[in-house]
Design a protein around this nucleic acid. Sequence first.
DNA 1: TGTACATCAGTGAACGCGCGTTCACTGATGTAC
DNA 2: TGTACATCAGTGAACGCGCGTTCACTGATGTAC
Lengths: 210, 210
Amino acid sequence: MVPMTSVTHDRYHHGDLRRALLDELAAVIVERGPSHVSIREVASRAGVSHTAASYHFADKAGLLTALATQGHGALATALEAARAEGFLAVGVAYVRFSVEHPAHFAVMWRPDLVRMDDPELAAARTRSGAVLYGGVAEATGSAAPRHGALDTLTAGIAAWSLVHGLCTLHLAGVLPGGLPSDVDELTRAVAVHLGAAGRRRHRPDVAGDR
Amino acid sequence: MVPMTSVTHDRYHHGDLRRALLDELAAVIVERGPSHVSIREVASRAGVSHTAASYHFADKAGLLTALATQGHGALATALEAARAEGFLAVGVAYVRFSVEHPAHFAVMWRPDLVRMDDPELAAARTRSGAVLYGGVAEATGSAAPRHGALDTLTAGIAAWSLVHGLCTLHLAGVLPGGLPSDVDELTRAVAVHLGAAGRRRHRPDVAGDR
DNA sequence: TGTACATCAGTGAACGCGCGTTCACTGATGTAC
DNA sequence: TGTACATCAGTGAACGCGCGTTCACTGATGTAC
């Protein structure tokens, strides 16, 4: 887990309490999961009264929404940086993000924990979504012949699903032994099997059946 | 959402309160998410005192663990039934399970909500895992030449990751428009891009890069 | 077939606790003149 | 440069609530004789 902020000195005016609270929130989520979060504990760990936290975030959902927003921003930045290195690098960056920021990852697509209609969250999601969808369209060739549009879309969803599922299962600790322990290597070894996407334009006979 | 039990008549001795509580738990999770569950509410919805629920489940983690156990059992049954119809059918069954039992799916791989070391849960996980791993090894040809073992394993993880990620994103409601609305069709359209797995025995040049 | 009794499956009151929220208040900082 | 004042960023006490847990108790059922 990589904290998103550097240290601040303790005065009455904290300086960057909002950031500090989000860092502590992330730490609590890593320790106990997103279901066992309380504003009071987060505030206490940041060394301030719990009302100070309420000053920055309207309520618990607001706190979690802010973490999700921060996460989508950071994910977008990571994916944007990887895009130039090609399709596979974006996938590797996605999985690496989930490992470096597991708490953010844990709340970023959780409509039951986060206010998905929050304007700032929506903006951040649009940014990360642009790389996710756009990047795949580029990589697989967006100027596809007819019937290619759905194929391009489903190829993108396949790639997203694969890396997202890999993150989820990996973070849950339910993957079996025998896999590469290095996460970049693991991602490449698994994503290799997404071979069909970049290779052809037409729909094959149903793949892998029998 | 498909309830796993049929109705019971109300007597002092309920008849199948354990089942009824799990059904209500599933309903609460679908409505508000696994983070907003309380024993008292589940008991109240089942029409019994909250102490009656404590009689059947030691605590909240026990309640959620029982749901996860039930889920793994049902998933194993579904996957076992689909296995004969081939590799792709197993994936379709997996996604269909997540849609029919979203509450179960939401807790089945959540070490922060569930006691993963619970013996009954472990047994149920072993059962579902057997189809998941074993099925893939069969479908891709387990008698692979050398260097094929890791390849077979990662192919299985790729398939699992893809369908698992698809479930997660679909249930979260974050998939973009333009995709097939029928879930079986969606799964097939996406899983098609996992083409590399069933087709060859040797590792290709790095797939999809560029 | 009756009866006694153990066990199973529930009730309902009481507990202490941590929660989110509200409130009046205060210390530190920035700005107008 | 100094002072007044508004605003920002916190404190700490108090609230009512729902929570999980514990406890003594009871109704229904099953079994031994």
